[in-house]
Simulated scan of single mutants.
Amino acid sequence: MTKETSLVSVGDFLDVYYKVKQKGFLQLASLFNLSKNKRVSAKWNQYQSSSDFWIIPALQQHWNTLISGNPEVSYESYVVQKYFHNKTNLSLLSIGCGEGKHERKFAVSGLFSKVIGVDISKDRIERAKQSAIENNLKIDYLAGDFHQMNFNNESFDLILFDSSLHHFNDINGFLKNEISPLLKTEGILVANEFCGPNRLQWKKEQLDFANDLLKELPKKYKTLIDGKSVKRKVYRPGLIRMLLVDPSEAPDSARLKNALQNNFKVLEEKKLGWNILHILLKGIAHNFLKNDEETNQLLAYLINKEEEFVERVGEADSIFGVYQKSGLK
Rank of each mutant, 00 (worst) to 15 (best):
M1S: 13
L7I: 13
G11W: 07
D12E: 05
D15Y: 14
Y18A: 09
L31K: 11
N33L: 04
K36P: 08
N37R: 07
K38D: 13
R39D: 08
V40S: 02
K43S: 03
K43M: 08
N45C: 05
S49D: 09
S50F: 12
S51W: 03
W54D: 09
A58Y: 09
H62G: 00
H62M: 05
N64C: 04
T65F: 08
E72P: 00
S74D: 15
Y78I: 06
N89A: 13
S94C: 13
G96P: 14
G98A: 14
E99P: 02
R104D: 02
R104Y: 03
F106T: 07
F112G: 10
V118E: 07
I120D: 01
S131V: 12
N136S: 14
L137V: 08
K138P: 06
A143R: 11
A143Y: 09
M149Y: 08
F151C: 10
L158D: 10
I159F: 12
I159P: 10
L160D: 05
S163L: 08
S164K: 13
S164P: 12
L165T: 02
G173P: 01
G173N: 11
L175D: 02
K176Y: 05
S180H: 10
L182Y: 00
L183Q: 00
L183Y: 03
L189Y: 01
V190N: 01
N192A: 04
P197H: 14
L200F: 15
Q201S: 14
E205A: 11
D208V: 13
D208R: 10
D212R: 12
P218A: 00
K222T: 13
S229H: 02
V230G: 02
R232K: 11
K233Q: 14
Y235E: 14
R236N: 07
P237F: 04
P237D: 08
L239Q: 13
R241Y: 09
V245S: 02
P247T: 06
R255G: 04
N258H: 02
L260C: 11
N263F: 06
V266Q: 07
E268I: 13
I276M: 04
I279A: 14
I279W: 08
L281I: 04
G283F: 00
I284C: 03
N287M: 05
E294C: 07
N296C: 12
I303A: 01
N304S: 15
E307D: 15
E307C: 11
G314H: 04
D317W: 13
F320R: 05
S326Q: 11
G327A: 12
